[in-house]
Amino acid sequence: MNYEWDFSILTEYRGLMLGAAAVTFQLVLFSVGLGIVVGLILAPFRMAERRLLRYPATAIIEVVRSIPPLVLVVWCYYCLPILTGLALPAFWTCVFAVALYSGVFFAEIFRAGVQAVDRGLVEAGMSVGMKPMTVMLRVTGPLAFLRVLPPFTSQCVMAIKNSVLGSYIAVGEILYEGQRLSIHTFRPLEVLTLVAAFFVVVILPLTLTAGAIERHVFLKYFRR
């Protein structure tokens, strides 16, 4: 292979790419944040004893989970406005679609965490006189979160990566601008390698930190 790498175009167009990276960061921030909120809202309903609360949540989770995320984004962009008469900008459509998609997975992760908490620890809370909400905030919640830290991290990573789906509906995030730039400059290798490297640089510290926290927590609280 005799390709001559020329990274100078990246410095030339760095303003464009930095702007695109900023859009990606905003996408990630809103969609992951909102996704966690969606998960926190859906999980209690999914676990509710009353079917009237549990069934709708279960239905939402099962339906959304079986739609490919790209289909969800594109559907929200083209079909939702027709059905509801409500047209959101592409950016927010992408945020909501990705948030909903990750949210149902967050909900399942949180549910699994709560159900894995030793019943005896919950009863200990009840028997010192904690109200159900206090038990949730002081006992079940923190312990469930410590338990689900690994799947929670993976799901965050997944949600971050799903931000590139915005490129299909012309959100000016990093993949969209990268593709346009590579066509414009005939330099797909440099530009798209940069796009890939961008995600490695963003995600790797995150997973490494989460791994370190996980080991620390395990050694401190759970290992003899």
Binding site: L121, V128, G129, Y221
Partner: peptide, 29 residues
């Protein structure tokens, strides 16, 4: 919950909260 606070329970398997210190467990109530 209020009533339960006046009749504390000690369990066979202790059920201490692993994420709180010994003192943290005691002052939680």
């Amino acid at each position: 919950a209020r009533q339960r606070a006046s009749m504390s329970m000690v369990f066979q398997h202790f059920n201490l909260w692993p994420h709180r210190t010994v003192l943290g467990n005691v002052i939680e109530g």
